[in-house]
Simulated assay, not measured.
Amino acid sequence: MNLCKLCKVRNADKENSHIIPKFLGKPLFNSHIHREALEIKKGGGNRKIQDIPKEDFLFCSGCEQKFAILETYFARKLVSINDFRNRKNDFRLIQVYSNRLLIPNNINPIFFKLFSLSLFWRTSISQSILYEKFKLPDLIEEELRLFLSRNLKEKHKELVEELSKIENTPNYHFVVFKPEFNDRHFIGGLTAYQTSENIYTIFTSDLVFQFHSDLSNADPVMNLVSNLQNEEVRVILSSNENWKELSSAVIKKVINNPREGL
């Protein structure tokens, strides 16, 4: 049996690990008409599925539990993010040039960074064909692994107690986008790939996560909208029109590419 890809100490005994957490793909299966999604293949072929991809024997049970702690916390927070208009005391809205930013007051930025970086890292080390085009440089992948391995905990209380002690967070820009209005008539898809030379993007039904591997070539505006800093969580609001255009472009990319997507 192979060693766990996170701790590299214990055997990778865990089966059915979601690379992208299930709650980020859940809306794909929540139609009032049916509870399934289409897996799109090269040339537009498709098949019906009822769950997002899972993989076996990547992690040990202990490390899988560490990811579960992050996911449980953020799954709850996503509910409030999607309902931010009705929870005005929990958020601030600011304008940064053409970007409208949502700033949650009730999400710990280090917790959010751990969750997001774990998402980028897991997608990069995945063996699924769905994420084959999302592969971080080896040195960055290992840097993220070491950061996560040192700081993730198997118990929520223990992680919360250690958050203030976490130092030397990876020095990379990453941005998160969400639609300004939740429109369940158009829920988009689920895929991940390298979208430009130094940008790696994960598309989900509720959020888009984008990792920038080269700090030196980043747009100066990135310093104002990204989560490189550790002081607050920043989410860029996208108009529904732009969100639909983005989702449609992603779907076309998947159909015309020799890879699979949801």
Rank of each mutant, 00 (worst) to 15 (best):
L3A: 07
L3E: 12
K8M: 05
V9H: 10
N11H: 08
K14M: 14
K22W: 05
F23R: 14
L24V: 01
G25L: 04
L28D: 08
H34F: 10
H34E: 10
H34V: 08
H34P: 01
E39D: 02
N46I: 04
R47S: 14
Q50F: 10
Q50A: 05
D51T: 06
D56M: 01
L58A: 01
G62T: 11
E64M: 03
A68W: 11
Y73K: 13
K77R: 12
K77V: 09
N82Y: 06
D83A: 15
F84A: 07
F84W: 13
K88A: 13
L93H: 07
I94R: 14
V96E: 10
Y97L: 05
S98W: 11
N99K: 15
N99G: 04
N99D: 14
R100P: 03
R100K: 15
L102G: 04
N105A: 12
I107H: 02
N108Q: 11
N108P: 09
L114C: 00
F115L: 14
F115D: 00
S116M: 03
S116T: 14
F120L: 00
F120N: 00
I125W: 00
Q127P: 06
I129W: 12
L130E: 13
E132D: 12
K133C: 03
I140Y: 03
I140Q: 11
E142T: 02
E143Y: 00
E143V: 02
E143G: 01
L146M: 04
F147R: 02
F147C: 04
L148Q: 02
L148F: 02
N151W: 03
N151H: 11
K153C: 06
K155I: 05
K155E: 15
L159K: 12
V160I: 13
I166G: 06
I166Q: 15
E167A: 14
V176S: 00
K178E: 06
P179T: 05
E180K: 11
N182G: 06
N182E: 10
D183R: 08
R184N: 15
I187G: 04
T191F: 12
T191I: 13
Y193V: 05
Q194H: 04
T195C: 11
E197Q: 11
N198T: 10
F203A: 13
F203E: 13
D214E: 13
D214I: 03
S216T: 12
S216Y: 11
A218R: 09
D219Q: 08
P220A: 08
P220D: 06
N223I: 01
N223V: 01
S226C: 06
V233H: 00
R234G: 02
W243A: 09
W243F: 06
K244Q: 11
K244P: 05
E245N: 15
E245V: 08
L246D: 02
S247E: 12
S247P: 04
I251N: 12
I251R: 13
K253F: 08
V254H: 05
V254W: 09
V254Q: 09
N256Q: 08
N256F: 07
N256S: 07
N257P: 04
L262V: 09
L262H: 14
